[in-house]
Design a protein around this nucleic acid. Structure first.
Lengths: 329, 329
DNA sequence: ATACTATCTGTAACCGGTTACATCAACGAA
DNA sequence: TTCGTTGATGTAACCGGTTACAGATAGTAT
């Protein structure tokens, strides 16, 4: 690998001049610049990002911490972040935390040792106080966190109300909700949206709440159990995976969707269009969320002012077969 | 951030000694070591990976180039790579190439500038000659490439024969195949497996081959068209997404799966268990493939000998509802 | 007593960039 | 003529680690 000194020698100039050409700063004579560029080409010179990082303490790299890329909500988010970062010549280190605070801490430590310029967090078991000490630009994605940290989230509460009301309008009166894990903030918000809407509609009942953990399997079993207990005519699942679980449970019990029980999910992952019947869902602008988070992080890194630090994006009700009944109220 | 010189000063030793403690090499007196470790703790010292990388030309980082993380085959693969790399204290830079040679080249360039220690390629539009010049340890994953590059693939040819024969045994005689894109090697292999098996069974017909591009939508439309043309009683799709497309097409035409048409996919992604009926498929050991690739790469990086450079893992026929007929032959 | 070896530590060069500072030429203004 | 400014370039320190080499001490073999 050619170094800057090789280039300097070949072009008959000093390393400072080569560096000036490289960074387009300071004065360089046009003729000289040509010679330098020529030398670079001849030697196929590419500057070492590492050497540069050492001096500048910035590496054109960011960390992206997600709970689990295997969860179908995240690939699109990750893709968005990568796409935008790529445009601005940043590179993305992917980290799976499994929602474990310890893993998050370890990753942050490593990322800092590598001089990453910033981190996007889509998971969060940590306290703001702890994050304060990291001393790296942070953007929180998908999970609301704390005032002083820029964040990009969707309207979980509103989306949940939307879904609940939609089931009501489709004629459902005993609407169950499969909760996500209560240590995840957006699951709590969705639950609250559901609860408030149910109360406003005057049909709230504690026993319609089913405990879930965002996983298909567990949701399926929980719904199976719930179905035998008390009649239910609609299910609002805390995410799409659980909605599929519910769908399977209902079908397995010999009931039909949407006529016996209508089902709506949450997230809007591609999966929802692959089931039969296709699943209604509250669609989040996943790609956009990732893209915005990436842009905010870059602005922060480059010290530009953020015109806004908290983004709450609107969600969209996607009505598909799983809630499309004839007999509407 | 404390530097090695800060630690040295505090412990009353030279930087060389601190470095020796850090790397556990050379002679260091027990007492001295204690003082140094104490100083490190007090200053919360973490060595700069960047400075280290500059000197050692190794960064404890690897690149992972995939076509598109959004394709449901890849998250598990990526996760496996990340998990294993993490164990060995490597960090993973994720790159989406969209199967474009140009993007792959750009990424490699960037990765080299960052002194990555190796690269896992799960995509490949490039010639071995070109890759030769990269001068970075490479492992090719999921796509067979070239003799001299270590690779981890599944038995695409065998799996395709397995799937085809399974449909035959379920009573299908006019078995269509939805091809993946022919510029992707594993799609070609699956096609060849299908073709050979069909010939051996004496039921091969060129017109049963349907052009696909690994995408659900396109496959669905192609199958719709094919269904009206000539009767078909079984479909072997080149991947699971296309199998779902086929399923939707068949159902939309008022036919039932598996009784009118049996369907089997390929890959074994979680999606196949979410449809109704659940999809039979040829399951690849995705996680294991990623994990092995990661281990091989590490061995290469660390200069250890590989006992084997080409891994072809067995696939498994997963018989589910979409091919479970009563009337078998 | 001498030579040799093992243990322990420090100095300084090096990795490949960036940049503060110095130098020098040319030119216009005072 | 002198000074100030702009343009162009080079020297060398610096970023924070690693390591070759040298030097010192102590113990052991001859």
């Amino acid at each position: 690998m050619a170094t800057i000194r090789d280039v300097a020698k070949r072009a008959g100039v000093s390393v400072a001049t080569v560096s000036r050409v490289l960074n387009q700063n300071g004065y360089v004579n046009e003729e000289t610049e040509k010679r330098v560029r020529q030398a670079m080409k001849e030697l196929n010179y590419k500057p070492s990002e590492v050497a540069r990082a050492l001096f500048k303490k910035t590496s054109k790299t960011v960390g992206l911490i997600v709970p689990d890329i295997t969860n179908p909500f995240f690939p699109e988010l990750v893709r968005a972040v990568e796409d935008v970062m790529n445009i601005y010549d940043y590179t993305v280190i992917l980290c799976n935390s499994d929602e474990k605070a310890e893993k998050e801490r370890e990753y942050i430590e490593v990322l800092k040792q590598k001089y990453v310029d910033g981190v996007i967090l889509t998971t969060n078991q940590l306290t703001p106080d702890e994050v304060d000490e990291w001393d790296v630009p942070i953007v929180v994605l998908d999970r609301p966190f704390h005032e002083r940290y820029p964040s990009v989230v969707a309207d979980n509460y509103g989306g949940a109300r939307l879904a609940t009301r939609h089931l009501y309008e489709m004629g459902c009166r005993r609407i169950a909700h499969i909760q996500g894990p209560m240590h995840v903030v957006n699951a709590v918000e969705r639950f609250r949206g559901y609860q408030d809407e149910m109360m406003e509609l005057g049909i709230w009942e504690q026993r319609l709440v089913i405990q879930g953990n965002y996983q298909l399997k567990q949701a399926k079993e929980a719904v199976m159990a719930a179905l035998t207990d008390h009649e239910i005519d609609g299910i609002f699942a805390g995410n799409d995976a659980m909605a599929v679980g519910a769908l399977k449970a209902v079908q397995q019990c010999g009931l039909t969707v949407p006529d016996d029980i209508a089902i709506i999910g949450y997230d809007g992952i591609p999966l929802t269009e692959m089931t039969t019947p296709e699943l209604s869902t509250v669609s989040q602008p996943i790609y956009e969320m990732g893209a915005i988070a990436a842009r905010i992080l870059i602005k922060q890194i480059e010290g530009k002012p953020l015109e806004k630090i908290h983004y709450q994006l609107p969600v969209q009700l996607m009505v598909r077969q799983s809630t499309s009944r004839r007999e509407q109220t």
